[in-house]
């Protein structure tokens, strides 16, 4: 299965990559996609667990889990795909300033009215080939800008919050037997001391209801027991999940195989080419319209002044 298509990789552009590198590129992008799917799967299971404690209903839990997993997957996909750019490469100067590219292959302001669409396509195709030959994807040491740091920090903070929230769900599942033991002790103690409110409302399922996974109605109580039971190990486990969640993002930013890939070059070239084609086409149409307006004889006549009827 072409996993890489799930994160928005353009199949046609990937085909244009050198066949020698194509297989590796496909493997890397597919691996990245599978990582995002695994992260979403963690969110799915974690959400099911949270929802089961609150609603005691498998269908609601699966529905909520699916929805949240979908939200996380798309959010993560957004973070990854917007991080894929050609910053630091020789293509960057043309990518951020398209007019520089136009100026190299077209005299700005020249008459385009008699240039056919086929000719425009030819100009664009030649310019693309020249740019491809000229561009090298070797990224030097990129100078960090404030905006880069800001967006990266935001990405990391958002993903860290998501990681810690959903990590707790998996940790609850891992230690569910131990947590249920503590809940049992808690129930016995409350019963023996005559504390009925906790027993009736938190530690006993409602009428015609039953507990799933945890013998309690309270998610906060389960998390409280988990935190007390694990102590600083909770932090260690949270860090493990944090690493899992941040690895795909780190790979996109740090791996040269992704950042300097042929696919990235083709993607940038494609975007520059498309805008160049539309730029030339628009120039041609604009010039035609101006010429038509100039050639048309315009007569001005006096009309009767209408009285306001309102």
């Amino acid at each position: 299965m072409s996993w890489h298509l799930q994160i928005g990789v353009d199949r046609d552009l990937l085909k244009k990559v050198d066949p020698k590198l194509n297989e590796r590129q496909t493997f890397i992008l597919s691996s990245l996609t599978i990582m995002l799917l695994i992260v979403s799967l963690i969110c799915f299971f974690s959400s099911i667990l949270y929802t089961l404690i609150v609603f005691h209903n498998w269908w609601i839990a699966i529905g909520v889990g699916f929805f949240l997993a979908l939200v996380v997957f798309n959010l993560y996909r957004l973070f990854v795909m917007t991080a894929l750019d050609v910053s630091g490469s020789s293509l960057e100067e043309f990518y951020v300033d398209h007019e520089k590219h136009y100026a190299e292959h077209h005299e700005i302001g020249s008459d385009m009215t008699n240039v056919s669409d086929e000719k425009i396509q030819e100009i664009v195709a030649i310019s693309k080939e020249k740019l491809r030959e000229k561009s090298q994807m070797d990224i030097g040491r990129k100078q960090l800008k404030f905006s880069d740091v800001l967006t990266m920090t935001l990405r990391i903070v958002i993903l860290s919050i998501i990681a810690i929230v959903f990590a707790t769900g998996i940790e609850l599942f891992i230690f569910k037997n131990q947590i249920n033991d503590v809940l049992e002790q808690l129930k016995n103690q409350y019963i023996s001391h005559g504390e009925t409110w906790m027993v009736e409302n938190i530690l006993t399922p409602g009428p015609n209801d039953q507990f799933y996974i945890f013998n309690a109605n309270s998610l906060l109580l389960a998390i409280d027991i988990l935190e007390r039971g694990l102590g600083y190990w909770k932090v260690v486990m949270d860090i493990i999940f944090l690493i899992i969640f941040l690895i795909p993002l780190a790979l996109v930013f740090k791996s040269k195989e992704i950042k300097q890939s042929e696919y990235m070059r083709e993607l940038a070239l494609s975007e520059i080419t498309i805008t160049f084609y539309h730029y030339l086409h628009t120039q041609k149409l604009c010039q035609k319209i101006i010429q038509e307006v100039k050639n048309k004889e315009i007569k001005f006549t006096k009309t009767k002044k209408l009285k306001a009827s309102i």
Binding site: V182, L186, L221, I225, R228
Partner: peptide, 14 residues
């Protein structure tokens, strides 16, 4: 159970 969960006094503490 890697022995990192200590539920011994958890109920009492709560």
């Amino acid at each position: 159970n890697p022995g990192i969960f200590n539920g011994e006094n958890t109920a009492r503490d709560i």
